[in-house]
Design a protein around this nucleic acid. Sequence first.
DNA 1: TGGGATGTGAAGACGATGTAAACGAGCCTT
DNA 2: AAGGCTCGTTTACATCGTCTTCACATCCCA
Lengths: 255, 255
Amino acid sequence: MQLAILDTDSGFVQVLINRADSLGWQCRRFEAPPPAEEFAAMRVNALVVDLALLGPGAWDYLQDVATVAPGLGIVVATGRSSVAQRVRGLRMGADDWITKPCHPEEALARVEAVVRRRKQASSRIDQAPVVAAELEIRADQFQAFASGRSCDLTRREFEVLQLLAGVEGKVLQREEIYQQVWGYSMAHGDRSVDVFVRKLRQKLESGSPRWRYIHTHFGVGYRFDPELREDAAPIEVSDAGTAPPATVDPAALLR
Amino acid sequence: MQLAILDTDSGFVQVLINRADSLGWQCRRFEAPPPAEEFAAMRVNALVVDLALLGPGAWDYLQDVATVAPGLGIVVATGRSSVAQRVRGLRMGADDWITKPCHPEEALARVEAVVRRRKQASSRIDQAPVVAAELEIRADQFQAFASGRSCDLTRREFEVLQLLAGVEGKVLQREEIYQQVWGYSMAHGDRSVDVFVRKLRQKLESGSPRWRYIHTHFGVGYRFDPELREDAAPIEVSDAGTAPPATVDPAALLR
DNA sequence: TGGGATGTGAAGACGATGTAAACGAGCCTT
DNA sequence: AAGGCTCGTTTACATCGTCTTCACATCCCA
């Protein structure tokens, strides 16, 4: 469990960190707001933030963080606050709102509830099937094997493959893939996902030429689904009384 | 948004329901705890519950519900409560804990936050495929299947179909369709919707010839409603290549 | 029967994707 | 510390599919 705390109230923060430490959580403390993207890059699970210290730009900042790091649990902790403020904060992307002073145990319990809620849903994604066609995906090795031979995937390549294979048959949008693997929102025009899919296809094909694993859904994203290639394998086939005009039927369902 | 409320505090409940109604949420009210499984069966998104009225078995009940309906957002609302109680409740599966009296707006904002976070990750997981006659519309694949075979719909085509099928039986005006799918207002004279309906009909018919799915309402718009074709072309005419535009007659029985 | 609405087909513009290569940051070896 | 490596990112260009638009045919309603 990784926790970020953005607050200048040293008393509150200290108590919180002590308690979190004893639970085995890792804490990172900020006294001034870092760029919103930083939370995403840090891979923390949750953020406890006192909006008061952010001043006038607090709402924008809150929204920024919630947008850039959609996987981040956000717990706002403030002194006095109005109902309208709390409603606004919760609508804007905060997952919980607590009022100081409060018992650190409760604060952490609420952080835990927020993170649990999120993990619960995403845990179903991570469970990858181990084998698909000639492919074997081994999470313990961060590697995929084609017919027993390693595909030499890099870490990112493996993560993309694991994600896609973990929801076999479902189309994942680039943005989803990026958020899951990279941990934060994709910048406009970023082609990283495409490039990694290409590398993946290349490596998978060289190890398992008879199968196609990753399919493109134009305008949407990619889908993992092992499919036997039917393409011209029999090259030297002499026509000699063969029935080559097999290419007629597909026209029926085409166009 | 479907909300269940388990509480006997009629004042609180009434205000909550009024506010929720005005947001367009559907509410279901309980004064006594139903079997935990019922919440799962009801397909509600969230449950607001006052533990006080559950008496001694409250904790067990809470845990039951959290276990049986893992997709349910649980917001506990009580009068006075101790830190230890709140911590226990949150650890046990509650997603949030609010103290009465509280502003209904805040209560609903918290419910919203809970459900939002939950949906975010699981949105694309539990989308039940929609089936209509020989058609199966799978949101997770951005694709429709006729008798198991993909119709090769493009993204826009799929979105139009999904929209129409989602309000099955209801006539949608072109302007409505355009705004929903394209996201902005249709320019005067734009025929895009018509063209897409045509492509859809074409692809659907080639995969499921015996059914008509999209009906035209002259001067109004389009309606999705699977209907068995009666013409059935009792023709012994061998199709001999592609059937010529024999699709003339069905127009007669249009509605 | 006429005029507007809708069906149908084709073609070009546009955006999305495939592909390859260059770049730079981090790491290991020397 | 310099050099060579791997990997991730970015850029550029080629290619391809899709969407829009237009023209014309056909149909419906007044």
